[in-house]
Design a protein around this nucleic acid. Structure first.
Lengths: 345, 345
DNA sequence: ATTGATTTTGATAACGTTATCATTTTATGG
DNA sequence: CCATAAAATGATAACGTTATCAAAATCAAT
């Protein structure tokens, strides 16, 4: 049944050596083989239904044309588009990928790293589960990290400029007249902690000779799944509004949190954007189709994915020319319908 | 550089034959090897840093412990959770997977099938890009299809009972007093066409001695991406409301469309659920976090994924005992906040 | 034609593991 | 203690491709 035809069978069929057959069927750049013999081989191959045995080929060259993508959780809306970007790019180069989730669990992450080594992937794109992730298992496997944490010095990294993006949002809110801006946060999707965000907004205010009151920082426990973090954020927002701290705008560190804020605002009859402006971060689908549509600081995840893929393949294929890169991509403010000028009262 | 230690090196190191070493390191069920030698091998392996070369092993056994998952588009919110279900299940059995997107393009889909054959995956879970998808390329590769289309007789299939789910929603709406129910549809995510839905709702009405007016069927062009189909549906809904055909409820064939309806209702100041009930289908995250939260007919995608994975592995590992299965899972109505009793007027 | 350079083809040895035997060692029972 | 069975280990041949080198065929130029 599954005893497939091999290159030797094709050779026998067309009366040529297996070397020549190999050159025709799997040889690169179609070099060094006469058109006539090429035809002969191809028709013989078609006749007996030859299909290349990639297992044998990979084994022989100890290359797989396969890369790994290690992320925390595929159901996190941040990742699918990123992966798509990777996928589209690597297809151009004839690579494919295995996708490994770790559910934020460092132990599973380590298993996955082990798997990468054993299955001899040619390289990996890794979104570390936490800033202390141990990458030593990977030895000299070419990798690109999706993070901008400074814990990974010496590694190649690609990420959006989250801080810059945050400032973009704050500046715009200031332009719109907002001065009482609440910060809704609880650790980013990359699990890099969020204390820098509080610092960033404080700096932002102090640069303008104002102070950011800690009352306006709404912290919520950040949990594993998007849905849980939504619930947590919603609870936090409900509490916040009950205290009726006067805030005219909310900046949330991701769209899920922003949508929680929007949800609570709707619930309480607070008009968005007339009475409250909300800006999120990431640019996920849920924010595009909500009502009102969410203003957000977009991270171009597809672009990150394709850049990471491109870099990785360069690193794999021309390792000598490679030198460590830290790419930081700007974010882009997308103004939709959840933000507007502060209400005159 | 990357010349890794092999089984032979370990054998030399510990003074045993490579056969014994192989039995210790990669042998199944830890049978037939003395505890003392086992220790000897393991410490030698650790000492010289042996890592199993899965390429060689796969090649030798012509098995990969790898399956493929072929879907249309990873960014379609339907799929990530399904894939997660697959992933969790196959991990139990020591399998991993490659994920292949086809962007609804049958040509790419065929390339992907070819890739499966050449890379010798042990099996595949396939969501056909369209009902006429050609699976002959796959010959006798064990596969499980994610569809309930009757075009795939003879294949193993798993899918939710969409029609049953739809009836669940309609029955509930009837219970709530709704008689004028609009059907918002345009082809399902599985691209299986949607004419059956119109038929189903007509049957539903006629079973109750009523007739379903075609005016209440809102068709929208179904496009590739979720966002586009949202826009299309929103446009269709705007048109529908302008005609002010009196409908007290909308049943949408997926959550994206339902959210489009919700969006337009909000836009027009139509109160949901007081003035209009909306029920969607699938149970995606966006519907859980919208305001109001979307009532939906849930398809348990994680369950489908894990069932598909379990079946596939059975089919792979005990092919003789296998017999063709067509599994149809019931849907579940999840009542959230977008549906309620019809308004008394 | 004859030489030499060049292109095209052929023969064959790896790659590192697993599977199949053959062989050795250990256990069992009279 | 010997015979026999059972358990543990060893030797070696695959798996199907690619890479290397050698041989043959073709081409160019005298």
């Amino acid at each position: 049944m599954s005893s497939k035809a091999t290159i030797v069978d094709v050779a026998r069929e067309c009366g040529l050596s297996q070397a020549t057959v190999a050159r025709v069927l799997n040889g690169q750049k179609e070099i060094q083989v006469k058109e006539k013999t090429r035809k002969r081989v191809l028709s013989a191959a078609r006749k007996i239904g030859y299909e290349r045995n990639a297992l044998a080929a990979n084994f022989r060259r100890q290359k797989t044309k396969n890369i790994a993508i290690s992320i925390a959780d595929l159901t996190n809306p941040f990742f699918p588009e990123l992966i798509k970007g990777v996928q589209n790019k690597i297809r151009e180069y004839g690579y494919s990928f295995v996708q490994l989730n770790n559910e934020w669990n460092p132990k599973i992450e380590q298993d996955n790293f082990r798997y990468m080594i054993q299955s001899r992937v040619d390289g990996a794109i890794i979104s570390p589960s936490h800033p202390g992730a141990d990458l030593t298992t990977l030895e000299d496997l070419p990798i690109i990290l999706l993070t901008n944490s400074d814990k990974f010095s010496g590694y190649d990294t690609i990420a959006n400029d989250s801080k810059g993006g945050m400032i973009l949002a704050l500046e715009r809110l200031f332009e719109l007249g907002h001065r009482k801006i609440a910060l809704l946060t609880g650790g980013s999707m990359m699990s890099v902690g969020s204390s820098w965000r509080l610092q960033a907004i404080k700096d932002f205010y102090s640069e303008r000779n104002m102070i950011f009151s800690d009352d306006l920082c709404i912290k919520c426990d950040m949990s594993v799944s998007s849905l849980e973090s939504f619930s947590q954020a919603r609870a936090a927002m409900r509490k916040f509004f009950n205290k009726d701290t006067p805030a005219t705008a909310v900046f949330a560190s991701n769209d899920i949190l922003a949508l929680a804020a929007l949800h609570v605002a709707n619930e309480k009859g607070i008009k968005v954007p007339d009475e409250l402006s909300i800006i999120g971060m990431d640019g996920i689908l849920s924010g595009e189709i909500s009502y009102p549509a969410l203003t957000t600081v977009e991270k171009n995840r597809s672009q990150i994915g394709s850049l990471a893929a491109k870099s990785l393949i360069e690193k794999i294929e021309t390792p000598l020319e490679w030198q460590t890169k830290k790419i930081i991509l700007p974010c882009k403010l997308i103004e939709r319908d959840s933000s507007g000028p502060v209400k005159k009262s």
